[in-house]
Amino acid sequence: MSDAVTDYDHLLRSNLNRVFNERDPAKREAAIAELFVETPVMFEPTDIVQGRDAISQVAGQLLQKFGADFAFVPIATAVGHHGLARLAWQAGPRGGPVAVTGADVAEIVDGRIARLWVLLDPPT
Rank of each mutant, 00 (worst) to 15 (best):
D3H: 00
D3P: 11
V5H: 02
V5C: 04
V5G: 01
T6P: 06
D7S: 09
D9F: 08
L11P: 10
N15Q: 14
R18V: 07
R18N: 10
V19W: 00
F20L: 10
E22T: 12
D24Q: 07
D24T: 08
K27F: 05
K27R: 09
R28P: 03
R28K: 01
A30V: 07
A31F: 02
I32V: 13
E34V: 07
E34L: 10
L35S: 11
L35M: 06
F36G: 07
V37H: 08
V41M: 09
P45A: 08
P45T: 13
T46G: 14
I48C: 08
V49P: 02
R52T: 07
R52W: 08
D53N: 13
D53Q: 15
I55A: 04
Q57S: 14
A59F: 06
A59K: 05
G60V: 03
G60W: 00
Q61C: 00
Q64N: 07
F66R: 11
G67E: 06
A68K: 12
D69Y: 01
D69E: 12
D69V: 08
D69A: 14
F70G: 01
F70W: 13
F72S: 00
P74G: 00
I75W: 00
T77I: 06
A78N: 00
A78F: 04
V79G: 12
V79W: 08
G83K: 00
L84R: 11
L84Q: 13
A85C: 01
R86C: 09
R86K: 14
W89S: 01
A91V: 00
A91L: 02
P93I: 00
P93C: 03
P97C: 01
P97A: 14
A99E: 14
T101R: 15
G102F: 01
D104Q: 04
D104R: 00
V105C: 11
V105Q: 11
V105T: 15
A106S: 13
E107M: 15
I108H: 11
V109A: 15
D110F: 07
R112T: 03
I113L: 13
I113K: 00
A114N: 13
A114Y: 12
W117M: 10
W117S: 10
L119Y: 14
L120H: 05
P123N: 08
